[in-house]
Design a protein around this nucleic acid. Structure first.
Lengths: 355, 355
DNA sequence: ATGAAAGCGCTAACAG
DNA sequence: CTGTTAGCGCTTTCAT
């Protein structure tokens, strides 16, 4: 028998449907139905059962419910780095809409490590009904494998066969480049993020295109770690190969960059203009306040979970082969927030003279 | 019967211990033991079972395991506000040590709302083996109720009968006051946080004591919301009742305060020195860089989970009444990080003349 | 509308 | 050391 008296189990043996059934003089199945399928039982009976159950302090056991049905009411969000403010609002958005729908969120932090990510998947897959991969560093094919086992939505990345939610990076990048061009900058440096990042590729690509259209030159430095430390490194690299404007892979790099630049005696925006990405917490109070391509963070998380819930609602058709559901894809608008870290390009003559 | 063909359930019917048992020519219980109790089974047999299981792609189903044992390998962390950078590192610390021990973390955000907190508890209690209440806004007695049902550790709060982990606020506050005193400040204003916050009470109390010892005067303004917006409000309040130095309930208020002060034409630290609490992300790149009482955030999370695991390891004795386990309590050291937001007190004469 | 009964996949006595 | 056998608490056919 399973752990009759010895163990820990749920605090102080709670009543079960059997206890309630006896107290009500009905069958356990009726009690079950009264809770899981209201309507499939006489209104009065149901009411009485609820009443008695409440008095007895009965609570349906989610574990027991999940075993036969698979309905755990759990959703997992796998984030690359909980410590990165980029995820704060995303988590908030995800949490809100999950809670609203009666789901609980399981958050796994994978420290930017593919191994940890795989491990997190192994751990959570059998537990959850759905999966949000926020900024996964895994390959598309690995993601497909996961998506096959469990409804999945990828965040900040787009895939041809897995539902996804992303920011419109191209549009955002274009705005940033235009902004810089209008300030008179002629050469722009991209400070790259991790190679494994999907957004990194898109941003760089979009930058080249936008620059081409406006007849600007581009350069690329990096990759840098998407952290303040990465930004510090970027500052050194940029000092070695001066430029009048830089667009960083993300705000963290941009902020680190600005600090590093100050230390090197290079002024922002007088000597170099800096643009970040994401508009994370802190972008509005660093010095100078950061001009950045704002991602709709909260919405990103909310939409991802909404799509997941939608998938869950849709009954899986047989082999999942045939009518190939139209792929859900959301591309949320990004917009440029102009603050103090960008300014007019310094004329070449003046540039030479300065410290 | 339970959902035979219709449903969703685990992706593509995975093999069970029964399948493995047949394939190995042993009893299911032996397979079970091979996984859950290595050592209780012949080494060779065990090896063979693992082998075959691996080939078949068998994975033990955590749900099924949890039902009879209660061992879900899940821990919950309830945070007041995922959006508050204060929690980032705490979560990281908690996640790391949980993962290391084979546990998965379930994070619930309660938006600083007691109702949401209660609801989150209802949802997660039956699911998890342990609970970390990070900065709970509930009453001590409510917490006790939860702690009775499930091993619990409270973070950033201390209780007489529930294990807790907190920062040594008194010590930290004392350091801050001494620092300000040494800079010549004679009157210090406390910008209070939420009344429901335990830390808020402790900090204010400690401030009064420290000030008394050093013969300083103290004032208290607030309560303010523990956010940048709260800090903005605090700036207005402070402008109405000028002071030469302020200690804020937390860094968020301090940062908001500094921004608000700038807008009002009041300089930091020339006109007023500002000290924050916690040393959150951003404290080192706001302007001026914030002097603050640093909490060992990462450690806080890690220690909390460690204590929880310790509790889980300790078998519960009968009614939990008798030998009254010695209460685990950790008080982690805080230390003052002196940065640019504090400076010498302005002489009274000069103060009057200035804008 | 309700009851009876068979499991979900695993664990844990209890024999052997 | 291994097999047998009850369940964990709930859902869900199938009858009634």
């Amino acid at each position: 028998m399973a752990d009759p008296s010895s163990g820990r189990k749920r605090g102080g043996d709670r009543p079960t449907i059997y206890d309630v059934a006896i107290a009500c003089g009905v069958a356990p199945s009726t009690v079950s139905r009264a809770f899981s399928r209201p309507g499939r039982v006489n209104a009065e009976t149901a009411e009485r059962i609820r009443q008695v159950a409440a008095e007895m302090g009965y609570r349906t056991n989610p574990l027991a419910r999940a075993l036969p049905t698979g309905r755990t009411s759990l959703l997992a969000v796998i984030v690359a780095d909980v410590t990165n403010p980029f995820f704060f609002e995303i988590l908030r958005g995800a949490e809100e809409t999950a809670t609203e729908a009666g789901y609980t969120l399981l958050v796994a932090d994978v420290h930017e490590s593919v191994d940890a990510e795989r491990q997190a998947l192994d751990r959570t897959l059998p537990l959850v009904e759905g999966l949000v991969l926020a900024t996964s560093r895994m390959s598309d094919s690995s993601i497909r494998v996961a998506a096959k086992q469990c409804p999945t939505v990828v965040l900040n990345r787009s895939m041809s066969d897995v539902p996804s939610v992303a920011t419109d990076n191209s549009r955002g990048m274009k705005r940033a480049v235009e902004h810089l061009a209008s300030l008179g900058h002629r050469t722009i440096t991209y400070l790259a993020g991790p190679d494994a990042s999907w957004a990194n590729g898109v941003r760089w690509q979009a930058m080249r295109e936008a620059a081409h259209e406006l007849d600007l030159r581009v350069r690329r430095l990096g990759p840098f770690s998407p952290t303040q430390a990465g930004g510090l490194a970027a500052a050194r690299a940029l000092a070695d190969a001066p430029s009048t404007a830089a667009i960083a892979y993300n705000d963290l790099i941009a902020i680190g960059l600005m600090r590093g630049l100050v230390n090197l005696g290079i002024r922002v925006p007088e000597d170099v203009s800096v643009v970040g990405f994401d508009n994370i917490f802190g972008a509005d109070f660093c010095t100078p306040q950061l001009t950045t391509v704002a991602a709709p963070l909260r919405q990103l998380g909310a939409v991802a979970v909404h799509m997941l819930l939608e998938e869950l609602r849709t009954p899986v058709r047989g082999t999942r082969q045939l009518p190939e559901t139209p792929l859900m894809t959301a591309l949320l608008p990004a917009n440029l927030v102009e603050r103090m870290s960008t300014g007019p390009a310094r004329p070449a003559a003046a540039r030479r003279g300065a410290g």
